[in-house]
């Protein structure tokens, strides 16, 4: 019997690198099939010296495939293990390989989408954006570096894991670890989303509810301070002004309370929360997100025009 052909670590690394381009030829017919075969090419070349075997392998991996691009890695790992067995004469049917690919892509996409697109990216994006909006270059750099470390680390590790575990991985997915990771990520995500709604969604109702005239002596007498300033002692003037402010005097003779101040006294961020619930409801009713976005802009303009916002 011929010596066993195995895929070396460098072969597997080459496949992992190529899986970066998994979605490159994403198409409406078979979706990620071109990318999958593109990733498998180094392994196919190594495992099958005969041309007819190569043709069969290429055609096998040009079948329909679609999942989250990062969790494709463990699937590729398992597929590599199966192809290796097959190349060494084991009776691995086309159906088995196809079955493993199709069987894993659905559940794994169910993990990858919420974890990467709806937890890690929004969180990292929000933290980075909070730096960036202050003009700090750290925001974009942090986003790019941290994301790609997580991404490539995940892809390489899970592909290796898939390769080692072979077919056993399908059993592991039903229980334990991945379920926990998904749930933990959802808890993290929901908590931070709640916080982001409070912090980042801004609605400010400007109508004035009340204008109260502050009693004499409870507000800073700027005119008197100004006269002190023009007489030459600016330092003393500033000192007086700050100590007056510090002792709790009002800045202006009148006190204005807007509708927003009242709402903030109730629950800060209540209206943003309600707006978010409204958006969720509309999205569930299959209203397109673009339509909602455009309507919100219109609400902003109209609301501003009638001095509500």
């Amino acid at each position: 019997m011929a010596e066993k052909i195995t895929l070396s670590k460098s072969d597997r690394s080459a496949v992992c690198f190529r899986s970066t381009f998994l979605q490159g030829s994403w198409n409406y017919e078979r979706m990620q099939n071109g990318g999958f075969v593109f990733a498998m090419i180094p392994a196919i070349k190594k495992l099958y010296p005969k041309k007819e075997d190569q043709v069969a392998a290429l055609e096998r991996h040009l079948e329909f495939f679609n999942t989250h691009p990062y969790v494709a890695s463990p699937i590729i790992g398992v597929t590599l293990a199966l192809e290796e067995e097959r190349a060494n004469g084991a009776n691995v049917e086309d159906e088995a390989i196809q079955g493993v690919k199709v069987g894993m892509m659905g559940p794994l996409a169910g993990v990858g989408d919420p974890v990467f697109w709806f937890t890690v990216r929004p969180l990292l994006g929000a933290i980075a954006a909070s730096f960036a909006m202050g003009g700090s270059i750290l925001g974009p750099i942090m986003f790019f570096v941290v994301w790609n470390l997580i991404r490539y680390g995940f892809m390489f590790y899970t592909q290796e894991f898939g390769y080692q575990a072979g077919t056993a991985i399908t059993k592991d997915l039903s229980g334990g670890l991945l379920g926990k990771i998904t749930k933990g990520a959802s808890i993290l995500g929901m908590f931070v989303l709640g916080a982001l709604i409070e912090r980042w969604v801004s609605i400010n109702f400007t109508p004035v509810v009340s204008t109260i005239t502050n009693p004499d002596g409870s507000y800073i007498d700027w005119e008197a301070l100004g006269q002190a300033g023009t007489s030459g002692n600016f330092g003393q003037m500033l000192h007086d002004a700050f100590s007056a402010y510090g002792s709790g005097l009002y800045m202006e003779p009148t006190r204005v309370t807007t509708l927003q101040d009242n709402l903030n006294g109730l629950v800060p961020g209540l209206v943003p929360l309600l707006l978010t619930f409204l958006c969720m409801h509309l999205l569930k009713k299959k209203v397109s997100p673009i339509a909602i976005i455009i309507s919100l802009f219109i609400v902003g303009i109209v609301g501003h025009a009638i001095h509500l916002l």
Binding site: D113, P114, F118, T119, P122, S186, G189, M190, L193, L196, I197, W200, V201, S202, I203, N204, P272, L275, T276, F277, C279, M280, L282, L283, K284, P289, I292, I293, L296, F297, I298, V299, G300, I301, V302, G303, H304, A305, L309
Partner: peptide, 23 residues
């Protein structure tokens, strides 16, 4: 200005999509 105000609210749509997926 109205656009800027709208922009402050539009963020909610993104959050809503995420929550719908995760909740």
């Amino acid at each position: 200005d109205g656009m800027a105000i709208g922009g402050g609210m539009v963020v909610a749509v993104g959050y809503a999509m995420v929550i719908n997926m995760m909740a």
